[in-house]
Design a protein around this nucleic acid. Structure first.
Lengths: 147, 147
DNA sequence: AAATACAGTTGACAAAGTCAACTATATTTA
DNA sequence: TAAATATAGTTGACTTTGTCAACTGTATTT
């Protein structure tokens, strides 16, 4: 079994874990309708409410030109709307349309089903533990402003 | 703060965490020399010893045609060698060359430094906790044969 | 008022990944 | 044992994903 003895040696093992579990989901489930990046934009907006494009860019660590194209596509599909800021004519505020919100819920639901399918081997107690550990990691990282 | 209330809702939040922390590393550090996929192949071989291409394919959930090209590139760079199986003339056994092993160590060392740089804000106790939680997740997943 | 910085867009391109058809060997089945 | 089927890996043509540099238009600084 691969173990995380220290952060250094871990990185590849953890990456492997990630790719297998989360990546599997993203590739096989989401890619059929939206790219991972698109799904994440939708997620970011649903969490952040009325974000500026630049904020999404920072949050996702992606190139502004790439984000620009993705937003254009999502807008064309009617999932988001952009409205220019009144304070700063350069800035765009992005928000989900009703359709975008529905899609977000569908994505979440689909994730749900996929995860269930993948984790049927897990006892409920293990599932809970998994979630707890993920939460703990999130806590440590947000607490120290790494995320 | 984003929380993992259940596996379903989590998937996007966890993905965000992953993208930020691990993805940052992979994109900025590894991509300069090797793609994430290449780095992971090197990792898989260093762990698995004398794997068949098909095993790597299964482990990584990537397309065989893509893997084929990646292996070709790594072979051309002298990082791996392929030798045909004696039992099955169709199969290739892949192993790291001395150079490949050196590169693996360099990658690990580089990861190390990058992670240190990223986590200087973390107290030693938090770092340890982070590692412990990652380990716990790995344990649950391996125990139930999900990985 | 001129210089500089910032938000976002666009064109041209590079990297990553996929699909279908193929070669060559193995295994199954009739 | 010959024909059909399956498997391991390769290749050509392609799509998707992501990047770089140059640009427009607005805001801020000097």
């Amino acid at each position: 079994m691969a173990t995380f003895t220290n952060p250094i040696a871990n990185i590849r093992a953890f990456n492997r874990f990630y790719t297998d579990i989360i990546g599997l989901l993203d590739r096989h489930l989401l890619h059929s309708r939206y790219s991972l990046a698109e799904a994440r934009i939708i997620y970011e907006i649903s969490v952040g409410e009325n974000l500026q494009a630049s904020q999404i860019m920072t949050a996702m660590h992606i190139d502004k030109s790439y984000l620009s194209r993705l937003l254009k596509k999502l807008e064309k599909e009617g999932l988001i709307i952009k409205k220019p800021s009144e304070q700063d004519a350069r800035a765009m505020f992005i928000s989900l349309t009703a359709k975008g919100l529905r899609e977000f819920n569908i994505l979440n639901k689909a994730s749900d089903e996929q995860i269930s399918a993948m984790t049927t081997g897990l006892k409920a107690s293990d599932q809970q533990q998994l979630v707890n550990h993920m939460n703990a990691i999130m806590n440590i990282l947000t607490k120290t402003a790494i995320i």
